[in-house]
Amino acid sequence: MPWGLRAATSRRFPAPAGQAADAAHAERLSVYLTDLLRPYELGPPAPMPGGQSYGEMAAALLPAEPVDALVLAYDIPDVAPGRATATYLSHLCPGGPMAFAVSDQGRAGAHTALRLLHDYARSGTYERSLLVVAEQSALPYDPGVPVEVPAEHCAVALLLGLSTMEAAVPRIHTQVARADVPALLGDLGPGTVVLGGHLADLDVKADAVVHADPAQPMTGGWEALAAVDGPVTLVDYDPALRYLCVSSFG
């Protein structure tokens, strides 16, 4: 049986993390961010009362069965930057998996993480794995460049292993102009196509087309994918970093 998608779950978190209401944590976070921002002359950070913790969000989505590897993919930093979140999740997750995080790649981060897990499984190691894609909606400073901040806290977990929903190797194209997206996609095959937030006007041939929530830059496409039954392809485009990503199952 091939390696692929076994199950996918998603959840939005309307409440902030418990740490967000902790005055001592807020003070330490302010000092930490101030020190990081000073060399870039970006000014002091704003309070972060509504932030979420990726450790708390991902913990709510951990599977009951053991896994060999766990990867957390995110873009927006969370309310607990001092925590080694992947290590923390490895401690909580059944199987005590090897764990790490992928970030600083915009929307491509989750596709990169999936590609790494695919390569691990193909090599015969870490066949049972979990991909967690998460984003939280509080950014306590101006990064100095345009950035899309999600509207809500959201996390999606993909349980991967031996499955009839075989995972293709994710395609990640760099330096892609928006006008070049259709030519690079080619034939996406049968099944459902999920289009990321910046691809709402894209004309594709598929059994069904689902549009991701554009207010959730990182998780919107994966959240929509988790609700699809049968073969599915997710197409993401990051206009700031000019990445085009395609991940397919089944």
Rank of each mutant, 00 (worst) to 15 (best):
V210D: 00
E223V: 11
A212T: 12
E223W: 09
H153F: 05
P217T: 05
L199D: 01
L116K: 07
V102F: 00
T174H: 14
A227S: 15
A157K: 01
V147I: 09
L139G: 05
G161D: 02
L130K: 03
Y120D: 05
D213T: 11
G220T: 10
L131M: 07
A108T: 06
C154E: 10
T164C: 11
A138K: 03
V169C: 07
A121V: 12
G109Q: 08
I172F: 01
G109E: 06
E152N: 06
D180P: 00
A168E: 13
V193F: 02
R107M: 11
A101Y: 13
E148M: 04
E148S: 08
A134G: 03
L116T: 13
G221F: 00
D187T: 10
R171K: 09
G191Q: 12
L162Y: 09
T164R: 13
G196R: 05
P140M: 10
I172C: 03
G230V: 12
D142I: 08
A177R: 15
D201Y: 13
V133K: 03
A215R: 10
A177C: 11
T174Y: 10
A151V: 06
W222N: 03
G191P: 01
Q175L: 13
Y141A: 05
H173W: 14
G109R: 06
E127M: 09
L195M: 15
A121I: 04
D142V: 10
R128V: 09
V176S: 02
V228K: 09
S123R: 11
